[in-house]
């Protein structure tokens, strides 16, 4: 394992009981520290399973995953301190306000009360949610929910931020704000693993992308370099279709 890798996935395999094909079929991936790394893949390619394994939410059949040098098999508690997950679902307590959610979550991370308050205020301001901080989550719009969901993942200043479709269902303004803030956060040294169906987003913000299909990485590199090296592919989307095809993948697994 290289010391410079924030996340190192080595020959990872995972097969669900009722599925014909393995979801992860010897996946190898190295995400450098400080990178803004995008994973692009059709439905059922194993993106969410990979994230869940990295975060210790799922067991796997073979291989290993190292996060910050720690193996998920033995040091998951240490890994959890390093990572911040922004799941695809709005993973918040709906009976609480935005501020209360952040206070509960920060408390679990053991952040000191005064520091937590200051951090919450800063992040709420950064993501334009100061005025709605004391409203219940159920009263938030889709874009506001996405932003507070992102703040919840950032609250403990993780070294590695993992985002699963962070801009799904949000308006252009919220989307733009989220992407701009992600670039800023990455510039502070935080490694970001960004998973999205929006290829232009990945092309725009990621310094490295990996395309996944059939449970393994089929292509990896800088978006511009990848498109330039493939004749006839004007952008990442064209390259993506070329590699993964246009056939629906809902039933792949």
């Amino acid at each position: 394992m290289q010391n410079s890798a924030a996340i190192e996935i080595v020959n990872l395999t995972k097969r669900y009981k009722k599925k014909i094909n393995p979801t992860l079929n010897g996946l190898n991936l190295s995400i450098p520290q400080g990178s803004l790394f995008g994973i692009l893949a059709p439905n059922g390619a194993g993106k969410t399973t990979t994230i869940e394994i990295i975060c210790g939410l799922k067991k796997f059949d073979g291989g290993d995953v190292f996060v910050g040098g720690y193996s998920v098999k033995t040091d998951i508690r240490k890994i959890k301190k390093l990572i911040g997950l922004v799941p695809q679902d709005i993973a918040l307590f709906t009976s609480l306000t935005g501020r209360e959610n952040l206070t509960v979550i920060g408390g679990i991370y053991g952040i000191h009360k005064d520091e937590l308050k200051s951090r919450i205020d800063t992040l709420l301001n950064q993501f334009g949610l100061t005025n709605s901080a004391d409203k219940l989550i159920t009263e938030y719009s889709g874009g506001m929910k996405r932003r507070i969901n992102l703040i919840a993942g950032l609250l403990h200043a993780p070294e590695i931020l993992i985002l699963d479709e962070p801009t799904v269902g949000v308006d252009a303004q919220s989307r733009n704000l989220i992407l701009e803030e992600l670039i800023k956060i990455n510039k502070t040294g935080t490694t970001i693993l960004f998973i999205s169906h929006y290829l232009e987003e990945a092309e725009c913000i990621c310094d490295t992308v990996a395309m996944m299909d059939g449970g393994k990485i089929v292509l990896q590199g800088n978006p511009r370099t990848l498109t330039d090296s493939e004749p006839g592919c004007k952008n990442l989307e064209a390259l993506y279709f070329k590699l993964t095809g246009k056939q629906m993948r809902d039933s792949y697994e």
Binding site: G56, L57, K80, G84, D89, I90, L92, I105, I108
Partner: peptide
Amino acid sequence: AGSFTRLLTM
């Protein structure tokens, strides 16, 4: 609701 997933990543 998904809040469980967040708790488990803590």
